[in-house]
Amino acid sequence: MIGFFRNGALGLFVLSALYVLMSIYLRSLARERYENDWADQQAQQSAQGAGTTMSRDEFVEARLQDYKKSLRAKLVLLVFIVPITAVAAVIYLMNYA
């Protein structure tokens, strides 16, 4: 029984590390996307004639605040749910089916 708890704790630790890495990666992708959006917006505005524009940092930070609340950021929790479900499925299929 102790083996289950030990390996379970180790597994949860590894999954937490993966969760952190995945959220950093996805946020980095989002940041790059918003920086490109800002560049596009600048190009558009200079083509149409100047309007009031936010600085790049303000623009990107504002978009990132919305991103943090969005569904996509929450999907990273799947990093916890999917492996645990897979292990449970393997245990069931191996021993009870």
Binding site: V87, M94, N95
Partner: peptide, 15 residues
């Protein structure tokens, strides 16, 4: 294989 490696989680060898 129990809870160890490889992760087959085989607990029912008697069965």
């Amino acid at each position: 294989t129990g809870w160890g490696w490889p992760p087959y989680f085989k607990l029912d060898s008697s069965n």
